[in-house]
Design a protein around this nucleic acid. Sequence first.
DNA 1: ACTGTCAAGGAAATCGATTGCCTAGAAGCT
DNA 2: AGCTTCTAGGCAATCGATTTCCTTGACAGT
Lengths: 332, 332
Amino acid sequence: MDRAVTISQVAALAGVSTGTASKALNGRGALRPETRLRVQQAAEQLGFVANAAARSLQTGRTYTVGMITTDSIGRFSIPLLIGAEDALGAGQMSVFLCDARDDPIREQYYLRTLLSRKVDGIIVTGRRTQARQPIGRDLPVPVVYAFISSADERDCSVVPDEADGARRAIRHLLAVGRRRIAHVTGPEHHHSAQVRAAGAVDTLAAEGLGLATPVLYGEWSEAWGRQAAGILLSTGADVDAVFCGSDQVARGLAEGLRDAGRAIPGDIALVGFDNWDVMVDGSRPALTSVDMDLEGIGRSAAEMLLAAINGEPVHGHQARPCRLVPRASTAV
Amino acid sequence: MDRAVTISQVAALAGVSTGTASKALNGRGALRPETRLRVQQAAEQLGFVANAAARSLQTGRTYTVGMITTDSIGRFSIPLLIGAEDALGAGQMSVFLCDARDDPIREQYYLRTLLSRKVDGIIVTGRRTQARQPIGRDLPVPVVYAFISSADERDCSVVPDEADGARRAIRHLLAVGRRRIAHVTGPEHHHSAQVRAAGAVDTLAAEGLGLATPVLYGEWSEAWGRQAAGILLSTGADVDAVFCGSDQVARGLAEGLRDAGRAIPGDIALVGFDNWDVMVDGSRPALTSVDMDLEGIGRSAAEMLLAAINGEPVHGHQARPCRLVPRASTAV
DNA sequence: ACTGTCAAGGAAATCGATTGCCTAGAAGCT
DNA sequence: AGCTTCTAGGCAATCGATTTCCTTGACAGT
C-alpha cells in the first residue's frame, strides 16, 4: 500500500548519493549531463515524487496559499475562486479552501491553521456591505483581499470599480437614446447600492441630466423588482429606461412591467448588474447587464499575492473596471 | 520578519527538553501535571503553533485532503464543497481545492500534486452525465466520489437517489389529488433525465397509472420549459400536473402556462427538481421542488473518506434519499 | 615532474517535531 | 541498609529533501 518512493531509492538506482540526486532533479550543482539524465530516468522509472513536507521543512516555502471566504462560498465567491485558483495553479501553487461562514471565531481558527501550515500567502474574499477589518495584524505572510476590501488602506485589496459599472450602464442607456432614467436597487445601507447609485447620478449630471425619479432602494430580490415596477408606474413618472442595481431586481422589474403591459425595450429599456447567466438569459427579453469580471479580480488578486510573496508587495486598493454586456433589453 | 516560534523555544522557556515539550503539548508520555501546565503556558505565551510540515514528515499524516472537481466549480459543486469542508474542518483537516475543468490532463496533474503533498485522502466531485472512470488505479490513499459515481463498483461513491426524488415528487402530486401527470425534463441522453423519468413512470405504475403524455425531453433551461408549455397545451392533452426534471425547466414552464392563461396550481400543479433557491423563489408561484441534499452528500462523502483514512473503508455506491420541499405551486 | 585549478560528486548538517529508549532519583519493600 | 520498582523527563534517532562544504581525480601550465 504505502510505497512512498524516496529520493534515496532513486539515488541508489542511479548509483549516486542522495545529495547528487537532489541536485540532478532540481537542476542545481555541477553534474555531468549524463549523470543528470541517469537520475532523471531512475526517478521516472520509480515514479518518484518529492515529499512536499520534507522539502518545505528545508526550504521554508510550501508553494501553498490559503483562501478564506468570510461569508459562505456563494455565487460571488465561485468566479473569484476559479480565477485565483487559475493564476495560482499556473504558478504550481496549491490552494487551501477555508469557509469561515461569517463567523469571526472560525475565521481566526482558520487563520491559525493556515499559519501552522506555513502557507506562503493568504487571499481573503467574501461579500460584505462595507470594508472589513483586516484579518490580522503583522502576519508573517502577505495577505490580499479580493472583492471585499480591507479597512486598512495599506492592505492590498482588489475590488470592482462599481461606479465605473454604473457609468457604463448609464452611458449605454444614453447611447441608445434614453433620457428619462430611473434607478431601482438594493438596500440603502449596502455599500454597493450607494456606490452604484452615486455613479449613476454623477454620470447623468455630467450630461446635464438627473434621474427621472428618486432612487428606489429595496432589497436584492426579484420580488422587490416586481414590487418596484408597480411603484414606478403608479408614480406616473415618465420613464423610458431603468438601471437596476442587480440582475435579480431587473428580472423582477421586467416581469412586473410586462404584466402591466409595458414593452421592453420598446417602452422601457432595462440594464441589470452582475451579469449572472441564469438571470440575464432567463429574463424576457434577455438582459443587458454590467459584468464585474469577478474571475479577473480573483486572478488579479492571486497575481498580486504572488508578487508579494516574491518580495514585491502591492499596496492599496486596486479598482478594476467593469464591462457592459448588451442584450435585447436595450436593443435599439 | 516574524521568526516562527519553534518547540525548542517553548521548551527553553519552560525549562524542559524539546521531547518533553512535545509530549506535554500532545498529551503523551508520563509527565507531572505541573510540568505539562508549565509547557502549555509557555506555548501560549509565545504563540507557538506546531510546524505542520515537520509534524507530518515525522508522523506520515498530513491532516489534509484533496478535493478535485472534475468539471468546473459550479452550482452543484458549491454545496458539496461546503458540506465536505464542514465535515473535514470539524476533524481538523484542511482541504486542497483543485478545479480540473473537465480536462483529463489537468486532472492527472492535480492528482500528482496531491500525492506529492501526501494528502490523507481525496474526494472527487463534479457533474457528469454518466459514471466516470476511476481517477487512478492502486492509489496510495483512499478516494471517495461525491455526486458523480465511479464506474468501478468497488469504489466508494456517494450519490443522490434520484429515482427516490422522482418518487417523492409523484407521490406528492398524487397526494394533492392530481392524476393526469406529465413529465418535462432535460436531454434524453443525460443519465439524470433517464433515472428521474423512469422513477416517475414506475411510481405511477405502482398506482396503476401512467404519464398523461410521453416524456418531453429537451434541455435543462427555462427556454425549453417555456417552449414545452406550448407543446403540452397544443397536444390538447388533459393534464393537471407536471413534474419537471429541473427547477429551470419548471420555472420556464410556469411562465409559459401563465402566459397561456393557465392557473398554477389551480389548473396545473408543478414540481421542480434541485430546489435551487433563486429558481424556486423567483417562480410565480413559488415552486415545490425535490432537494437532493447536496450538502449532506458532501458531508457524507467526507465522513466516509475519514472512515477510510482510519482504516475502515466503505465500498460501493451509497445512494442518499431526496427530500421534497412543498411550496405554493402544489398547494391544495 | 610538480603544483594549481576545476569539474564532479560525496558526506553530513539542517529544517522542526515526534518517539523509543534510557537514566537519575524517589519511593516501596524486606 | 540494600534492593527493586516506578516515574519523570532527557537524549538522540528519525522522517525526506536540500545545501554547504569537502574530497577526489583529471588535466593544464611551467
